[in-house]
Design a protein around this nucleic acid. Sequence first.
DNA 1: TTATTATTGTCGCATTTTGAGACAATAATA
DNA 2: TATTATTGTCTCAAAATGCGACAATAATAA
Lengths: 240, 240
Amino acid sequence: MKNLYSKFSTVNETTFLHHIAYDSVIFGFSGEKLKILIMKYHNTGLYALPGGFMQRDENLNDAVRRGLKERTGLENIYLEQFYTFGDVARYKPEIMQTILEANGHHSESYQWMLNRFISVAYYALINYNDVVPTPDALSDSCDWYDMDELPYLMLDHAEIVAKALQTLRENLERKLVGTNLLPPLFTLTELQKVYEAILGEKLHRGTFQRKILGLGLLQRHEKQFLGKAHKAPFLYSFGD
Amino acid sequence: MKNLYSKFSTVNETTFLHHIAYDSVIFGFSGEKLKILIMKYHNTGLYALPGGFMQRDENLNDAVRRGLKERTGLENIYLEQFYTFGDVARYKPEIMQTILEANGHHSESYQWMLNRFISVAYYALINYNDVVPTPDALSDSCDWYDMDELPYLMLDHAEIVAKALQTLRENLERKLVGTNLLPPLFTLTELQKVYEAILGEKLHRGTFQRKILGLGLLQRHEKQFLGKAHKAPFLYSFGD
DNA sequence: TTATTATTGTCGCATTTTGAGACAATAATA
DNA sequence: TATTATTGTCTCAAAATGCGACAATAATAA
């Protein structure tokens, strides 16, 4: 909203690399559920993943981080590129036309946005509590949605989300990546809930703790007293 | 060579999507060694991965398969996209300029090739014996190189190769993908050599055979009599 | 103070998977 | 007929995994 004009009035077709976009699947974890950030465009009923374009003098990864910062307020995010979507079928200029018109943009300087794009897709893992979801100039909301209650997403964005989740699951077995969805200090039970949400299945507590601690990547800290009528769990942090 | 003019004279800057290229790491296996196809450009001493551009009405994956067909003569290749390289640092227009000039192309219709490109990288696994390596219009050779004896590769192509190999190793653990580097019928020892070449380590024969056969994905056929003074191994095929 | 409750850290045991050597079978040669 | 090199398969030990159990414990209730 606030930067509708500041952003677009200074931007012409030479600012961005044509034909290339990125989309990001931003995962968060809250209420024992896996969630992602979804944008809703002004006056169109269209839901989409947060995305954007690369500046002509900007690294692809930096462009994505810049967009992530704008959408979440966060820097130093865990970010992984997982696939580039390049089918002709995803080229639907009338959709971008609709979005631009709904925002009062008819200028020829946006013609480049109506061309065909391929999209490089990333997923990010962030600490839900740190995020202030922020819409961009074209959208009136940027909100968390449960992975199992997503709205209909435009273009091939549902496919992108599906592939992001699949890749995340595969990486979960290789790296201790789930910690990025939690605060710096967390209990093993919280981490187990993250794993269960991502994998979509219950895990055995004893086995899970043995495996995770066996990696030797977590540091144990003080206990966490929550005033509950049971033993207090230890807090852990990743690394250091 | 033969299609230098036929190819380029009919191609103008509106044929291809600007700013997007692909590169392919084409793996083969021969003499117990893992190899890849490398092109050498005319009169420049520049070595590079086989690559190309997308047509404006062409799926990204199809563009890559089209290029693969041209370079190897093969269709229905095992192909996997693994990363998109988009750093500004990889933009070195003077290199493309050198290549074009070495081929006598000064026309303004190739200006678009001097712009910045991002490159979507794929790796392919093919049966070495089926391939007829074929240079393109700009190069005078397209040849197999041992993975441990690669020439200096231009731009970030060495990095692309490294990431291809890393991804292939990871996928080897998940899918029975090594069979794509062998003929339709192969022995378990041959398959083991493929695994060893990719992973860069020796494997225990008994354990390897138990694991591979335990997947239940190979079909046993007749024995292979090679006239050697020892027991003849069974031949296997993937699937069916 | 003392029992109750819910959850934690950890252990033990059975099962499964993996690593590594061993041995008989066998295709060709000496 | 013995030799040689390699194969298919087995066994045994070691490691990893699945699953239940139990004492410890932080707060509450009696």
